[in-house]
Simulated scan of single mutants.
Amino acid sequence: MHSHQTTGDLIAEQIRRHRERLGMNRHDLAAECARLGRPDLTFAVLTTIETGRTGKDGKKVRRPVAVDELLVLGLALAVPPLLLMLPLGSEQAVPTVPNRDPRDPYTVWRWWTGEETPTLGGPIDGRYIAESQPIGENGPKWAAAWASAAYPASMYPEFERRRDAVHRAYLRAETAHDKRKTDKEGHVSAQTDYLHRLEELARHINDMTLAGLQIPQLRPDLIEDMKGLDMLDDPDHIQTRGDE
């Protein structure tokens, strides 16, 4: 297991690792950052990020990477920015907060994406022990507050899954429609499946609407079908986009 004092140390190591993976030196990386609109990420700055500079006390001090810089560096290095701080597959544990133990990288990854509720005590994978303390004297339980805030993180991937399922079912129904004279049973089955998938998507859209979430744009024919079948609680809440 590797040990890192801070997340900044880990990010610095990953920047160097991916820079070398691409055969880039720090001048190359600085030029790429400038191309992306961050000319302030110079050779000298990248050096202080990667190796630090000696302070008055003789100790090496790294320059921290800001959140907006993390995105630029990730794009410049052709690596998902989150992997710079959570290197899946190469580390057994990564830092979390200063007064708690490191955690498995993929566990922390799921915290960042809202897929899992953080648990700072217990086994290294972060599971099994729920954070039950309340927020303030009369506030909600911490885990409940987190789940409420993280709700959108679960809704959009599910929307995409259901939308794609509808698109596939729609194409199957279109193909079956052309063959309806020779395969009536297949036509009915494909149309039934399309309507079932469309209803699943509409229910999900209604849940998102109730939560006050913006609905990603959809093909107009799918929206018209949902409206025509009275599947939507608030038809005006969604926008159309051109055919794919």
Rank of each mutant, 00 (worst) to 15 (best):
G139L: 00
M24T: 03
R161M: 09
T119K: 08
G74W: 06
Q92R: 05
T48I: 00
R21F: 08
T47Y: 13
D225W: 15
N206A: 03
Q133N: 12
R219N: 01
T117M: 06
V45Q: 15
E69G: 10
E32S: 14
T107S: 06
I223W: 11
D243Y: 04
R127F: 00
L195N: 11
V79Q: 14
R219V: 00
G37V: 03
A190T: 01
K56L: 12
G212M: 14
D178K: 11
R17W: 08
T119A: 10
L73F: 14
R203Q: 11
M226I: 00
T175L: 07
H196A: 10
K60F: 03
H27T: 08
V94Q: 12
A145Q: 10
A176L: 02
R53N: 13
E115K: 09
A147P: 10
D101R: 13
R127C: 05
G37Q: 11
G23T: 02
K141Y: 11
G122Y: 14
L171E: 08
P95N: 07
Q191C: 08
S132H: 13
D164I: 12
L229V: 03
R203P: 01
T51D: 15
H204T: 02
L171D: 07
D234H: 14
P95W: 04
W146A: 07
L84T: 00
P235T: 02
P102I: 01
D221W: 13
T192R: 15
I238V: 02
A153D: 01
T107G: 04
V61T: 04
F43N: 11
P220M: 15
Y128A: 13
P87M: 11
V67A: 10
W142H: 09
W112P: 07
D183Y: 07
G212I: 05
A149K: 04
L198Q: 10
M24D: 09
T54W: 09
V67L: 08
K60E: 04
H2Q: 08
D193N: 12
A44F: 12
D233Q: 12
H27P: 05
A169D: 00
E200N: 15
M231S: 04
I129D: 08
E20L: 15
